[in-house]
Design a protein around this nucleic acid. Sequence first.
DNA 1: TATATTCACGAAAACGGTTTCGTAACGCAG
DNA 2: CTGCGTTACGAAACCGTTTTCGTGAATATA
Lengths: 340, 340
Amino acid sequence: MGDVNIRSLAKQLNLSISTVSKALKDSYEISIETKKRVVSLAKALHYNPNPFARSLRLKKSKTIAVVVPDVADSFFSAAIKGIEEIAQAKGYHVLLYLTHEKYLKEKKILEELKNGRVDGIMMSVTSETIQTKHIEEFINNSEYNIPVVFFDRAIDDMNLAKITTNDFESCQVATQHLIDQGCKKISYLSISNELSINKKRIEGFKSALTTNHINFSNKQIVECTNNAEKNETIITHLLLTENRPDGIIAGVEKLIEPVYIVCKNQKINIPTALKIISFSNLPYAPILNPSLTTITQPAYQIGQTAAKVLFKGIEKKGYSCNNENIMLPSELIIRESTSN
Amino acid sequence: MGDVNIRSLAKQLNLSISTVSKALKDSYEISIETKKRVVSLAKALHYNPNPFARSLRLKKSKTIAVVVPDVADSFFSAAIKGIEEIAQAKGYHVLLYLTHEKYLKEKKILEELKNGRVDGIMMSVTSETIQTKHIEEFINNSEYNIPVVFFDRAIDDMNLAKITTNDFESCQVATQHLIDQGCKKISYLSISNELSINKKRIEGFKSALTTNHINFSNKQIVECTNNAEKNETIITHLLLTENRPDGIIAGVEKLIEPVYIVCKNQKINIPTALKIISFSNLPYAPILNPSLTTITQPAYQIGQTAAKVLFKGIEKKGYSCNNENIMLPSELIIRESTSN
DNA sequence: TATATTCACGAAAACGGTTTCGTAACGCAG
DNA sequence: CTGCGTTACGAAACCGTTTTCGTGAATATA
């Protein structure tokens, strides 16, 4: 049953392999009747061309890779959803690789992808990714010219396509909102000060402070980790100092849970004693206790536009998508956690 | 630069292609010095064997497919994380396909996978999946013997591997908990009454009712949709009838948000007027308003064990994983939404 | 009628690996 | 010296496509 390939088709039809191949792709070289015969038998036998033979011959895999730190995160999962939808519509397959925020995994994954397994890559780098050698090496060493598109977590000084959000402005606006609500001592919780998007957010944060003539100290930037327990300790410490903040901006969704938990345990009232904003795509933000003010990124749209850019880079010959640099606006959604 | 393949290696080393190939896989036929020469040059040139040539020859792709309704769901994303981790450790690649709860997409995806693109499939079926023809046809028509493993949303009467949770018991326990807390009129919110896991949960639900001598009526099973707005209407209707329920079990995480929203809008107090339990893996359940009692599935472990079973089915020759039927226990985590 | 063009198809190379099988060279026993 | 086994390697088939090029027949053109 299994041996339905182009050769067996040809044999049954008394045709050559090349004729069958051409007939199946509706070539003008083949007569209409022959095409009909071929197509109908192919359908009847559920002929499905071998993808590896095709990829080997054409040097095209009709596959893209998505390399992200995590999938259990509302931003990334929504972005992936957007990517997958565009890919499926274009007839592409999607390989998923998780880096778990580990630079070494990211490096290893890129090495695995140099051999043409995918036609393009979309990635959001690790919070550990400071060096860019592995990406540069990928660009230079990959067999073919495999385009790479960054989404959200990009590396600024690389000449590659980037689809991001307005991190500077949105963090500035968020900080201003906290100040307007009466906050004097605001902390920014980060998971990596090296990450480009975090740098921009921190710049926006500082900018709002100076606009309002509030002094900035480095202690206001609290660097967290990828370990949930450690984060709880860090946040507990932060909220137990006598000079504790009265406002918090969380740079990543994951940090919201420990903040809420610590506040509950330490009986710190949100928003009276502490106002909170988070970068987050949580659909559950409105039903938290209290509901959470968020800077919500258009995750799904980011995924979709990034995918569209990538496919343009893959399919348009003579065109490189490297100079694409699209910035989509995030939205500050004000809820109870920053009310008065 | 790009043309570093086994042929160019052979040429530079003055060896034949076959010798290089064997040397690279450490064959006993090749002398130690030759192996060293080959390996060192391969490393120096970053030789990476072409995956399609290899797959074509070996009829193995070192790739599995994960077919799920959605990725922006805490259960599926955690399960995928578990799957990806095992796959990466085994040197496998993971193709992700989203069905968006559409039977037709599921069918189309399976058709695409018949040609050997993947060595195995893990899937959680659509809420629309009533027929099983597409899966049967896949099993019978696929080129090679591609194993399929169901996780969570399985089809009971198919002879395929299934990794699920104790849906009957956990729903029974949850229902009993609601009854213990004083609920008299409990509704179960479902997204598909045909889904095997839902049937089992409903059975568990009924079982608890009869144990407690409470009459059951079909109206207690409220079938929701995949459309968020419709769901809100359905739930609003449910909660505005004069004989409205005093307890709710949500069969799927997505339905929690509308329930909370409607309660907020209609000023129905949780848990005083309405107690709520949800099947959910939300890490944010503890910080909802009020915190949510959940039946939490071991999503990550399900993904991992399902992947392990699949790889056994793929790699162990003469072994079929079809009879694997593993049931992992869910946990009822009691929080404020069902307190008195 | 002779020639050019079009039509419809087939032969064979190519993609880059793996694997089977053959064999030259060598050592060793008889 | 002959026969045999071992060692280390190479030739070639094969996996299933795509595509270039060639060709015989039919048709159009001069």
